[in-house]
Design a protein around this nucleic acid. Sequence first.
DNA 1: CATGAATGAGGATTCATTCAT
DNA 2: TATGAATGAATCCTCATTCAT
Lengths: 211, 211, 211, 211
Amino acid sequence: MHFVRGLDVKFRRMKDSRRGQIMAAARRVFAEKGIAVGIADIARAADISVGGFYLYFQNKEDLLRQLLDETGREVRAALATAFAAPGEPLARFERAGHAFFREICGRRRDALILLLRESVGFSAEVEELRKRLFQQLTDDVADAIRRVSGRNGRRGKRQAQVAALSIFGMLERVAYHYFIWETGSKDRRKVEEEALAFVRDGLGSVLLAGG
Amino acid sequence: MHFVRGLDVKFRRMKDSRRGQIMAAARRVFAEKGIAVGIADIARAADISVGGFYLYFQNKEDLLRQLLDETGREVRAALATAFAAPGEPLARFERAGHAFFREICGRRRDALILLLRESVGFSAEVEELRKRLFQQLTDDVADAIRRVSGRNGRRGKRQAQVAALSIFGMLERVAYHYFIWETGSKDRRKVEEEALAFVRDGLGSVLLAGG
Amino acid sequence: MHFVRGLDVKFRRMKDSRRGQIMAAARRVFAEKGIAVGIADIARAADISVGGFYLYFQNKEDLLRQLLDETGREVRAALATAFAAPGEPLARFERAGHAFFREICGRRRDALILLLRESVGFSAEVEELRKRLFQQLTDDVADAIRRVSGRNGRRGKRQAQVAALSIFGMLERVAYHYFIWETGSKDRRKVEEEALAFVRDGLGSVLLAGG
Amino acid sequence: MHFVRGLDVKFRRMKDSRRGQIMAAARRVFAEKGIAVGIADIARAADISVGGFYLYFQNKEDLLRQLLDETGREVRAALATAFAAPGEPLARFERAGHAFFREICGRRRDALILLLRESVGFSAEVEELRKRLFQQLTDDVADAIRRVSGRNGRRGKRQAQVAALSIFGMLERVAYHYFIWETGSKDRRKVEEEALAFVRDGLGSVLLAGG
DNA sequence: CATGAATGAGGATTCATTCAT
DNA sequence: TATGAATGAATCCTCATTCAT
């Protein structure tokens, strides 16, 4: 039985690695040539046959869904980890912002492009997934804001929700500008500082308003 | 000859009206069914033949380009007009924000969807156009910020640029959330207030920092 | 208006002729290479592009459906015409039998192959259509038998139904053998005579039983 | 050596049982989902791997061929056994007819569907096999008719051949109608009676003609 | 200017068959 | 013998674009 379980695990891993290999290739190809590339291109980039692709994904939309799920998990994890470390509330928000720029924009440009550009408007179902994903992310942040501000009334909730949306919107557009389009100032450290200063100020009064 | 010129003008107008008719139909159809709809659908919605479409637009991308240009002009105009009226700097920014929600999100949902969802990642050329468009918009705002703050050094420029990007990012995501996905609070007036309060706070220190 | 109607009619005809051209080509190709041929083969045989095919038929199944409908109408018409002429009941049945061999097997081998071989088991929907078609044909014959025999009780109905089915079964298998497989005796006139003699005898007692 | 032979025999048996297991599963699956199902479905139904399938059959067509052969043998055996028992010639034909309905239609619906629906038009080679199979079956019956009628001239042969074909055609269509489509009267006993009465009458004069 | 039938390249997906293990 | 992942040719269908009328 051990042997069989061992095999099982081994196969599961192989399967996972194959799947991961395709996902990585797809992210690369999507980022470079756009999501309109054919399955053949993805398969080629993943060193696999066209039929092989369909062994691991039901169809192109399924691949995109898994890619988005993964990206969503990564972003949430990066933000949550950075936010979890002890410190002043505002400092923790700021750390989370830095994490977004460092972990995601800096290290996962492919994922960023997928999330902000290539997956947009792909299909109704994918759009629904994007919506859920953004809701999770903004809910996470809105919860954090509410916990810090202590405001739990309808107004407090809406305020936290809007603040969370605003923060994400800022991060997104700044990321799109500097990391996807690679426009404007090349000094991303400074850009990062300014952007987070803007967040801090916007957030500051939201948090203080509750005190 | 007058007659001929008259005809000419008339034809130019007819041509313009035809073109406008197609563009309006396209915006409607794109917003409803996504940019993947065929030319046939657009032509049907515009009460024109498929061949007729190609008399007014070189191809689908050309249509999209013109649609985006138009939308860009409208947004700039709405913001510029609102900002131009006299008053305190911060109040003028706020008015521009209100104009975005009222004029664009409220009255031009089709254009909003096109700008933020359907045109994203369509093709390299369209993406280039989107980039230019966003640069114009953020440059407008950044200029205004710089004029008010008086800071014209490299740092001031970057600061203004980032602030402008941040403001647009916020407006975009809030618009996407409440006007495209139509999620969350139904009280858009209040959402608008909160969002603009956030902008005001973030902007406040940028402007004051220069004083 | 006459002009416009004229155009309309002309276009309808052109469209019909195009459609008919494809249907004729398809019957030929199906009979020769089997229904598994690709749309490309059908299109080539019909001197049309692949896209052109889809201008006239929703998909392959739609083509098959229309082909079967047409064949069904032809067979019913051939039998009905032959049966309608005056004469003794048995002689009229016999004439209908001759019509089947002459009009359908002799002149429309393609249609015969489609009906008895290529359309079999294509898809659930087509099988449903085949079922309806055979029911119509056997109902026609069963009605004729009942009218002649005068028996309208449950037993008479069943008897007529089974006799009609039997007749069709005979005609089909004889047709399959001699006209599709082209096996056995080459003297089809004589085969025809023998087969119809068999029908006459089987039918004779059914008809007389009622007297 | 005994040991080895024993093993050999055992393996042969295992091989046979494996093969039979696959054939049984295939008949079931073909009858239910149509012959278009993939090898994977058949393998799953037979509790075997895809690769395993190819240890016992060269390819899908080979499976179909063996399935048809088997079905042919069964039908011939059922008819021959029923016909072999002593009695009046006509009564023996009738018994064979009953055997067809009882043994084949009633007990082997899967085989019936395969023979009359799923194997039709599969490929040129399978069609050839079907042709041989039907020839054997009709030759068997035609021989029996000839032996009873005593007519051995060219005309007698043709007459017997056509009569045999007619009988099979009737049985087939009645079977298709009542046992495959499961349409019409639910009282299969009575249907069977009527159908065989029809055969008896048709056959009667063929047999008597020779006397 | 206007039409819409026609084109055909391109993309998604399936499935019989093979082969390394 | 047995497995099932891998292959890739084959097929269906769509849609931007053209062009004869």
